[in-house]
């Protein structure tokens, strides 16, 4: 299964409103560049959330009692990029923006 999401700054901001995050790395591009990033960063849990949502659909009922998801953020997710989030039949999770792998991990049942 996979989903494609075009990440926007508005989506990053909306997630920040929900989770109460005031870390400027998510909306201050000058600060983000000062830290060595090319743009502001999407929230890690937001990206993980896309994968967790896919897993909920993939595993159905069992996800809610036996589901576990584990991800590593290996590259930043930036606004104005299309993110492709996928889970294969073995439960391997990947999120890519173009040729760059941003997230790797797994979503499986215990």
């Amino acid at each position: 299964m996979e989903k494609r999401i075009f990440i926007t700054q508005a989506m990053i901001d909306q997630y920040g409103v929900l989770n109460g995050d005031n870390d400027i790395i998510h909306y201050d591009i000058d600060y983000a560049r000062q830290r060595g990033y090319k743009d502001t960063l999407a929230h890690g849990p937001m990206v993980m959330g896309y994968a967790a949502e896919l897993a909920a659909r993939m595993y159905g009922d069992a996800w809610h009692r036996r589901g576990e998801i584990e991800v590593k953020f290996v590259a930043p997710t930036y606004p104005n990029e299309e993110l492709v989030v996928s889970i294969d039949d073995g439960g391997n999770v990947v999120a890519k923006a173009g040729e760059t792998i941003n997230v790797v991990g797994s979503a499986r049942l215990r």
């Binding site: 009692r65 576990e68 991800v71």
Partner: peptide, 9 residues
């Protein structure tokens, strides 16, 4: 910045 995250339900 987050490096890794795990959740079990």
């Amino acid at each position: 910045v987050m490096g890794a995250n795990q959740f079990r339900f």
